[in-house]
Design a protein around this nucleic acid. Structure first.
Lengths: 150, 150
DNA sequence: CAAAAAGCCTATTGACATACTAGGAAATAA
DNA sequence: TTATTTCCTAGTATGTCAATAGGCTTTTTG
């Protein structure tokens, strides 16, 4: 399954902000850009989307940047996915003309909508904090001073 | 999640062939086209793909058409999906340059590949015969003479 | 044998989405 | 006031999707 860079970078950016915005410090797009190796201009667009979706707060001006708008433990992946991509967790839309009770309807209702249900279930359970915890515990170069904001 | 018409029509075509090719009779693309309301020319391309993937056999010439190459109970949805779309069940590919052990890797390995695993699990269990049975049992206009090949 | 019926193959096209690049306006802190 | 940063808009190259179209090949049938 193909994952768009917009979603991928969006998640990475959120995690980066969660990890590095300790003590209310802001994280700038150039910080994230260099740390995560993402084009800054492209990243900025994604950050705007994340702000509009209510996940982060932006602080303009010198020494500005981003902080999480909510604790990472209260941001689920299903919310993030819906905020960045209004297709990936959506059920298949069948136009009224095609609802003929035939095989096409059944494929959509029995296969795809069911798969979407599984995806929603899994992504609803997992939070940004879970993901960061997973990343932290599996990272071997962890020197003990690894800090993150939950 | 978006489903391509190629995959959707491919499944419908397979089901249609399974249902209507009783006693070794063939099912022509024009039969499927009119029954399922799919452009015949487009359908033909999909049928070629289904034949090349080994799901159906084509019989050329007058009175020709298609039959299943294997029993519907031995055709899983994961096989069909892989035959029609080499992306939908595939794990995210990460180029060697990007395997830096950072957050991007983790997003792919912990989220997407896991989701793919669930999808593969579900689609591997379900067969074409299961789907047809489901369709048959839920179709209210069933008059008892409904026949299909398993 | 000829003609019709079917599968089979390839090329082309319009629409749309993706993944950026680019330029600059607005706000804010130093 | 100047540097820094977010924020907004436009453009663009590339690729995929969903067909449409034309015609060749094979096989049955009259």
């Amino acid at each position: 399954m193909k994952i768009s860079t917009k979603v991928e970078f969006g998640i990475v950016a959120l995690a980066d902000i969660a990890i590095y915005s300790v003590n209310g410090e802001t994280v700038s797009s150039s910080d994230i850009s260099s740390r995560q190796n993402i084009s800054q201009k492209y990243l900025e667009q994604i950050l705007v989307a994340l702000r509009q979706a209510g996940f982060i707060r932006g602080q303009k001006g010198s020494r500005g940047g981003y902080t999480l708008a909510r604790p990472a433990s209260e941001i689920s992946f299903s919310e993030i996915l819906n905020g960045l991509d209004n297709n990936i967790l959506a059920d298949t839309y069948v136009s009224e003309d095609d609802t003929d009770g035939g095989l096409r309807d059944k494929v959509n209702s029995c296969i795809w909508d069911k798969l979407n249900g599984y995806m929603r279930e899994f992504t609803a359970k997992m939070t940004l904090a879970d993901f960061i915890e997973l990343h932290k515990s599996e990272s071997e170069e962890n020197d003990g001073s690894f800090m993150y904001y939950i």
